[in-house]
Design a protein around this nucleic acid. Structure first.
Lengths: 351, 351
DNA sequence: GCGATCTGGGAAAAGGTTTTCTCAAAAGGG
DNA sequence: CCCTTTTGAGAAAACCTTTTCCCAGATCGC
């Protein structure tokens, strides 16, 4: 039992090459290549024999060599500045999902909000000859801190502000807001408040506008949307304003549509602390469908899901077709949201 | 103003090659290569001239060609099954941080818990000739559903169960638990309870054991750790048990060490609902330092941080040295945690 | 039986870079 | 002034695969 019985000379012998396969099969590399790729003409036996030898030797073609020749690396870069990955991870999963079947791998680069870092990563990608780039961020109305406009390879923007003339995919926030309000209306709620994030975010206005329109269409009173932070604390404050002593109980909302799940959670907690029951007295809907939050609220939160995985899938497919030479219609495409119903709105009357 | 003034024939001319640089500078490719890499012998003027030409033409060496030759792709794969990225994202950031300066890029692959998908991704990586692989997961005591044991390229395991004989990096959970208990002791807390996750997790026992030892060392009463789920709901339940009517107020704990931040949040909320003040009556410490949760609790939660970014950095560096041919000591290396103090424990008496 | 077609398979170039070897010219030594 | 050493730079191989010819032998039609 010597200590160095097998020091595992990690040095691992080099991978087997096509040349070796050809030699073992007694053919030329050209023939071997064609046999394995189903190209060229040869007897079925020859092809099969070569295939078997390759199999036996564990041959795997060297993608680097292939890429060099084909001028396609079957690799794309995903740029994000969403450090916590709340938005970019589902998106990434979708992208990956769309690409893996095509043998395409994804370089993930977090550029924070650092131009230098972004530049560095983009150059690294370019040097590695990625076939294309997907740019994604944590908010729809901001550019990544990188210029991707003259890149010679296709770029798709997902969940971030696209360059003019580029193809961009974002969620349909207005549609999402309508979904939420509709749900409330269907449940018979009539005094619907809206508590959302800071004015600096475009989505705040998009959603608020949609909310307003929906209510007006139905001839319902439109409360002024309450703008604040994307935080639970703001949810608490907002409840203090909406359900404060200023107005009588009959002036209270019977529904609150929140700009994200954290606000919604704050709202729900604050309501509970005031003895106002959710969903019996007030229904609450959040936005983002961040499961970890939505499922921990009491009761679990109904929320608008932006379908980020689908968005990622679409972005991946769009990039793929762009790489394949298909011209894609530039401009921003909005993908629908969906409502994930949990228990914070109650059942329809008589439902 | 014709619509097709500049249809932007996306066809982008091909990148400039070394051959073109050489031609433009009136030298051979060999000389050009050596000039740009600081190799070979030539007059300073020649070298400078070539450099300038390269600069002017915007030459960037083709990494595919370089990799093919050097047998190093300057690319590594990161495998994870942590869909929400709570653990793998900070880790990834650390890895990336350690590697980017060395020109190494990272393929991120989420293998969920799907063996087939894992196999697929690993083979794709192998085909793309990654220099090494970092395997990471969402819990320390489980293997990824993939066999990486005979891979011919180095593998480093970070925050997941390593193969025997491989190099693995994990957090020092026992140390983290001691940090928490020490903090309580320093603040004069004496009746410290422990509420944690399910028995199926190794860390539950590691931390509970460290907790127990610390208390015994100090001659303090050791409560039986309460095992449950990793959820807020369990935090509520646990409070009901610890602060129920069964025992008198003087039997109540004055500190609760929680197995993660969600449990801690449940505990804090439940205490508040019972009118028990945090931190005045009871101190609470969480685990994971998941900022989004820790900062939203009222009061903000003191929590043990596993330093996952550092772990990632170390993993990246370890892989790098392995790739460079340095033999690394196999086995599991534990990296220290740190305590992030917020406001859920109060100040030291007289502090 | 002879020219035309077909068939199976190979040689070689291409892709972009690095590195080793080679070689001519210049410099140096005696 | 001749021989050796140094210097500057180029030719070519190598990395691995794909693809475009090309060719020798077989088959076919008449």
């Amino acid at each position: 039992m010597s200590a160095d019985a097998e020091p595992a000379p990690v040095s691992a012998k080099p991978p087997v090459t096509l040349r070796e396969v050809a030699a073992a099969a007694g053919v030329s590399v050209a023939t071997a290549s064609k046999a394995l790729n189903g190209q060229g003409r040869m007897t079925a036996e020859t092809r099969e024999r070569i295939r078997e030898v390759a199999q036996r030797l564990g041959f795997r073609p060297n993608h680097l060599a292939q890429s060099l020749l084909r001028k396609r690396s079957f690799t794309v870069g995903l740029l994000t500045n969403d450090t916590y990955g709340r938005f970019s991870l589902p998106l990434m999963a979708g992208v990956s999902d769309a690409l893996v079947d095509n043998g395409v791998s994804v370089f993930l680069c977090n550029v924070e909000d650092d131009m230098r870092l972004g530049q560095l990563h983009v150059e690294a990608m370019l040097d590695k000859r990625v076939d294309g780039i997907i740019a994604t961020g944590k908010r729809i109305d901001r550019h990544l801190p990188i210029d991707l406009s003259n890149l010679r390879i296709p770029v798709v923007y997902a969940f971030t502000q696209p360059d003019p003339g580029a193809v961009g995919l974002v969620s349909d926030d207005a549609g999402g807001a309508r979904l939420a309000v509709e749900h409330f209306l269907r449940l018979g709620r009539r005094r619907i408040a809206h508590v959302t994030g800071p004015a600096g975010f475009a989505v705040v206005h998009t959603r608020a506008e949609a909310y307003r329109e929906m209510l007006e269409e139905h001839g319902l009173p439109v409360g002024e949307p309450l703008l604040g932070a994307w935080s639970e604390a703001w949810g608490h404050d907002a409840v203090a304003r909406l359900f404060g002593n200023g107005r009588g109980r009959e002036g209270w909302p019977d529904a609150v549509f929140c700009g994200n799940d954290q606000i919604a959670r704050g709202v729900i907690d604050a309501l509970r602390e005031r003895g106002i029951r959710v969903p019996d007295d007030v229904g609450v809907i959040g936005f983002d469908n961040w499961e970890i939050v939505a499922e921990a609220t009491r009761p679990p939160l109904t929320s608008v899901d932006m379908n980020l995985a689908s968005l990622g899938r679409e972005a991946g497919l769009a990039l793929l077709s762009l790489v394949g030479g298909q011209p894609a219609a530039p401009g921003i495409r909005k993908l629908p949201c969906r409502l994930v119903v949990r228990q914070s709105c109650g059942r329809p009357p008589g439902g």
